[in-house]
Design a protein around this nucleic acid. Structure first.
Lengths: 257, 257
DNA sequence: ATGTGTGAACAAATTCACAGCG
DNA sequence: CGCTGTGAATTTGTTCACACAT
């Protein structure tokens, strides 16, 4: 699948999004956001240096990323903000509207439904569903909560392609199976469990506790590097989970090797 | 990852967390979650194959990750679930309690405050703050919302180290500056803007629209590969953002094939 | 001049494949 | 044997440095 050499003589690869690396794709939304912000503030031209700074990446990375989309910069000048917004936007699929259903209208589902930030990236929440009959019928963010079985019709009639799962961990796999069975091909889950999906279905997870766990790891590393003695508190929940180690202060970790 | 210089004599933490790659750190919380799940279901031993499957990674990756922590597996047998939970947990800092403040108690802040999933990863929400006086004093998830200025004291007196920003995009940078000035060293932001933080402060972003943007990109790529004609709708928001191609009707996406 | 676009060098992460241990 | 742990090979991503277009 890797044809390393012959590229240069060839023009833009078909529609411009063929071999874009995953790492680049993950940064495109960031670039787009920064660019639209600049545009709103009346900026018409940016250099890779400025744009990179604002996006929090290196300028070389930024230029390489944009070059993957068949870039539109002007040598000696920089990038035209308007053009670049259009170009990146089109690559991300913003000329189309990606319809989203939110599954599970608990407090997180509520928050997501009311969150206005999707639209600028081409996605729109068009339906809310919940399996709890006492929630169905409720009006949230201008939409009526529908029964879970309705997903099938949302996919076939409204063209919904993306499901956001905001359900409890215990029912996440079942909800995921249900939306996949209904024909959903992209899933964004907020539940703190690993979901299994069939091949061909895109799954992304956003997990608050995972993120906090990563931050905690770094805090801990920093504290250790500082020789600092952290406050040690053992909440019962952790003890119950079997964590804590002998003596409640396992500083003498085995330094194998 | 944020080390511009070619690794000087780095001071190693004297425990097992020396030189653990970022990619590995990001997976540890996942392993831990899967492991505790197995433990609760009475499983006492797992092979790298099984654990990897459940965690959604390759078995080689999993073994290499665990080996970075100075692994505890038994050749020919597998890993003892209980031991591994302890070990990974300790590496993630679960023997300590990482105190968290949530900044911004809007609908997302409410949802986060009520979300119970943190505890298993060693973090605990101990305070809520908001700059809006009409929200201050409200009782949410058993905590009273405090005025924003209180952050300084939360850091110095309660030992809060991590701030979760659930504020609107427009005030996110100001809120971020404020918590950093108060002495917070780790920030998890939900606002759809790129935040600038001084060196030494860990920043992670969770951005719903970015995630959906990535899914949309893949959906689009898939659709293009299928030769499918997507429903084309141009919401005004996109037009306003300058996306959609010159002529406002650029529906003639260059469909390859 | 100036700053993009890009090969080439480098670094990180993943995967392979197998030695070695229980 | 079976399965971990790990060097070596491979793939993937980042950074450098400079030719070249404007």
């Amino acid at each position: 699948m890797t044809d390393p050499h012959p590229a240069p003589p060839l023009r833009a690869p078909r529609d411009g999004t063929r071999g874009v690396p995953d790492a680049t794709v993950a940064r495109l939304p960031v670039y787009l956001r920064v660019l639209t912000g600049l545009g709103e503030r009346g900026v018409t031209t940016v250099s890779s240096e400025e744009l990179a700074l604002a996006a929090g990446v290196g300028s070389a990375t930024l230029r390489k990323d944009l070059s993957h989309l068949g870039s539109y910069g002007v040598r000696g000048v920089g990038y035209d903000v308007g053009h670049l917004v259009q170009h990146v936007g089109r690559c991300l699929g913003l000329a189309e509207e990606w319809r989203v259903v939110i599954v599970g209208i608990g407090s997180l589902g509520h928050a997501l439904a009311n969150y206005g930030g999707f639209a600028p990236l081409g996605t729109r929440v068009v339906a809310l569903v919940d399996s709890d009959p006492s929630v169905v019928g409720e009006q949230v963010a201008g939409l009526e909560v529908q029964p879970a079985e309705r997903i099938v019709r949302l996919v076939s009639e409204l063209g919904v392609r993306i499901a956001v799962l905001a359900v409890p961990a215990a029912s996440a796999q079942a909800a995921c199976d249900a939306v996949v069975a209904a024909g959903i091909t992209s899933v964004l889950s907020f539940a703190p469990v690993e979901l299994q999906v069939p091949a061909g279905v895109e799954l992304r997870r956003v997990d608050l506790s995972t993120e906090l766990g990563i931050l905690a790891f770094r805090e801990r590393r920093r504290a250790a590097a500082d020789g600092e003695e952290p406050v040690v508190v053992l909440p019962e929940t952790l003890v119950a989970a079997g964590v804590g180690g002998r003596g409640a202060r396992g500083v003498h970790a085995e330094v194998a090797r």
